[in-house]
Design a protein around this nucleic acid. Structure first.
Lengths: 189, 189
DNA sequence: GCAACATGTAACCATGTGGTCACATATATT
DNA sequence: AATATATGTGACCACATGGTTACATGTTGC
């Protein structure tokens, strides 16, 4: 039997990530992770300090919101740049399943184990989305719409429609993008 | 020992409701309900057909969205009536914890047990929020904002802030309402 | 009163959970 | 080579889960 701690740690961490990504927060447990990694769960406690440690590791590595953070460098002075930013942001959100599951998780609980992870991911969100505008109404309108985007994205995992909108159709998301752009325009007129 | 089936059924159903309302979907289980009702769980199977039956009962009784449905009668022709409707809707959502937990539940799973409940509650949402406007952009903008309201409401249970906004402050919700109103205005200009 | 039925309980089952344990085996150190 | 240490395993624990069973007791109809 070969022994390779680095490889084992990697197997555990990757199993944890893919489990979260594929099956959501509810499916993430010590037993499930150990089984998926093909390893004794004792090692998860020994190497990571249990589930809490794995979440902390995820927080530190922070391999979510990457794309959004690179966009952060863009100046957001012109209306066009804000619109571009919004469009990239919504796309990133729809494509990044791991981020989605972390956001879903935040709607379920907030305890010692998850606190660090959420704290970090929220810092990321703050960095990206803190668009301080003179017009506080625009700020709140944008925050509502961003929240709406998150909500509809999470909802689309289990629901085909929201009110009259088909969440499985790319057209719908294009329309949401357009509505978002138009709102930005209207507030800037 | 007194025997009163009606009273027992009521105890079970009420325990189920308050458990869902207070602790969310994850806390709702046969054992927990039976324990809270102070009754043998066998009776839940016998009288309701298990958890699935309880959910079905909730769907049929449908004692959520009541306030919103009475508002439905308002004509939504004038801009002012749409704004009033929006304001009442957001208030109702923030106050109705049971509705909130059902909406939260929809973000977690969709299986045989929950299907009927979600189907019914979505029909209610559709009735209330199907504002067909000539301007499809306004429609999508409103849907994003409604979704955002739902998201932020659910988020506020475990999180104090979203981006820069204090979710525990009434002012914040007033500002969201104002932003919603202003958006409606801008689209109608 | 007595039989039939409705109502209620507690024990039990298989399974799953997080967590710990003693132990085995591979790798490093002396 | 012998010893110490790092790595890995499987059994085990207490507890909780959904679900079923056998049984006891209250209520009703004859």
């Amino acid at each position: 039997m070969k022994k390779d701690r680095a490889a084992t740690e990697s197997k555990i961490y990757e199993s944890f990530l893919s489990l979260l990504e594929e099956k959501g927060p509810q499916a993430v447990g010590i037993n499930a992770i150990a089984k998926k990694a093909g390893v004794s769960k004792e090692l998860i406690y020994r190497y990571f300090g249990g589930l809490q440690g794995l979440l902390l590791q995820l927080a530190k590595k922070g391999d979510f919101f990457k794309t959004l953070l690179t966009l952060q460098n863009n100046d957001l002075e012109t209306v066009e740049s804000v619109k571009d930013f919004a469009k990239s942001g919504t796309k990133e959100l729809r494509e990044n399943k791991l981020t989605q599951e972390i956001l879903r998780w935040q709607l379920l609980e907030n305890n010692d184990a998850t606190r660090d992870l959420f704290k970090f991911s929220n810092q990321q969100i703050d960095k990206v989305f803190s668009i301080s505008d003179k017009d506080s109404s625009l700020n709140h309108a944008l925050q509502l719409m961003i929240g709406g985007y998150v909500y509809l994205t999470l909802l689309s995992k289990f629901n085909k429609t929201f009110i009259t909108t088909d969440l499985s159709s790319q057209d719908s998301w294009d329309n949401f993008d357009k509505a978002l752009e138009k709102t930005i325009d209207l507030f800037n007129k």
